[in-house]
Design a binder for these strands. Structure first.
Lengths: 224, 224
DNA sequence: TAGATTGTTAATCGATTAACAATC
DNA sequence: TAGATTGTTAATCGATTAACAATC
């Protein structure tokens, strides 16, 4: 699904020393899915995995997977498959984003706690560095290893911690005011897990999805 | 992103009375996104919406939106846009799935509660008819208007309520055994919000995603 | 009328798929 | 060797985009 113009077409002239070309959106999306499956396969003790198995788990065609990977090098062994460990390393290198970005989470309710307690960010090297909630009864309590902070701290935390992404796991009515505060504080990427239709300036990117909305999309696929 | 072979290419012979052709996967996915935005726009009291506004909210190109819709009829008014109410009705009619399917939710933890308390299913006519949890301290308590049931009831509930979709919002280690019980009970569609890589027979469809995994995918898009 | 926005066409681009030689 | 699976090509299909006449 398109998410707007982020990565342009490969515009790098052919070049022996080949500085990395910008990944196309589709490729980046798929690589991150492969990475997620590989990370889990590694936890389960798997040493190798075939493009067909990756296809079964990601629902991406196996030829497409081999083509995505072979664009960056010959990572597989014919007749065997791909080494899980080394493919994880290669894809991380291609995506080049691990561990460099700090995230702030808003909302210490059910969804906020579910996100904060996931180990997936640590697995992939992203840092959730702060959790906010508007409810004074929640501030000060600990969620996912972080003290819940009052929303008044927003500006200071964004500045001190270099927050580049704000995640809104708040009730629909609370989302728009928070989005505005995030924009004022200089945050340019907002993940909206509420159902609100956020109004933001054009330079700000909003990504809206939620567990329930995702489920709904998929239901329209699978039911007939 | 491909999710396997579900909707084939249009294979209906041309026919005056035109029985509905099977929707392509991409079209169904996009229509459900439009529907989600329209539903929210309606709640906000909007009467009309343009393809450009729908594009801003869904990140789908506005020409693509007009083309998707015009394939089913002339729903818009030139110079004005689309009537929100009537477009909701039309898309629901095209998708033809509202309110016909019962869903069972597993896991009354943070994520389960977040999903159960969403009003999006009611908005779109799907029914979450049962919530299960393995923890005896949780069974009997009420979540989202449902009494939490013990997992032993699974087979009986699937049969009595005609459950066609099982949603796993449980810890990773608990997902595989539950998936097997669902398969044994005859459920053929499983939504997996855990990080487990589920092993199921080929006739069963697994859709894996979670709020944290979705956020991760999107991070790889937006950060560079 | 003037401005806005749909509906539709045509061109292009990327994804999908089948097929198969190479090779582990 | 035999079986499996990669890497790669070629053909096809669907998505994307620009452009613009129609028309509200």
């Amino acid at each position: 699904m398109s998410v707007g113009e982020i990565a342009g077409p490969a515009s790098q002239p052919a070049n022996g020393d080949a500085p990395a070309e910008r990944l196309s959106l589709g490729v980046a999306a798929r690589l991150s899915r492969y990475l997620q499956v590989l990370t889990q396969a590694k936890k389960m003790g798997r040493e190798t995995i075939s493009s067909q198995e990756l296809s079964d788990y990601t629902h991406v065609n196996s030829t497409q997977i081999r083509r995505d990977l072979s664009g960056f090098g010959k990572f597989g062994k014919r007749g065997v498959g791909y080494n899980v460990d080394s493919l994880v390393t290669q894809i991380r290198r291609i995506l080049q984003t691990g561990g460099q970005h700090n995230i702030a989470l808003f909302g210490a309710g059910h969804l906020g706690k579910a996100i904060a307690s996931s180990d997936i960010f640590a697995d992939h090297g992203f840092n959730v560095v702060a959790i906010f909630d508007a409810d004074p009864r929640k501030t000060g309590s600990s969620v996912g290893g972080h003290q819940v902070r009052p929303v008044e701290d927003l500006g200071q935390v964004v500045e001190d911690e270099g927050i580049v992404v704000g995640v809104l796991a708040v009730p629909t009515a609370a989302a728009q005011p928070l989005a505005e505060q995030l924009v004022d504080a200089g945050v340019r990427i907002i993940f909206n897990y509420s159902e609100a239709l956020l109004q933001v300036p054009p330079e700000v990117t909003v990504h809206t999805s939620s567990p329930a909305v995702d489920l709904l999309h998929a239901l329209y696929f699978y039911l007939s």
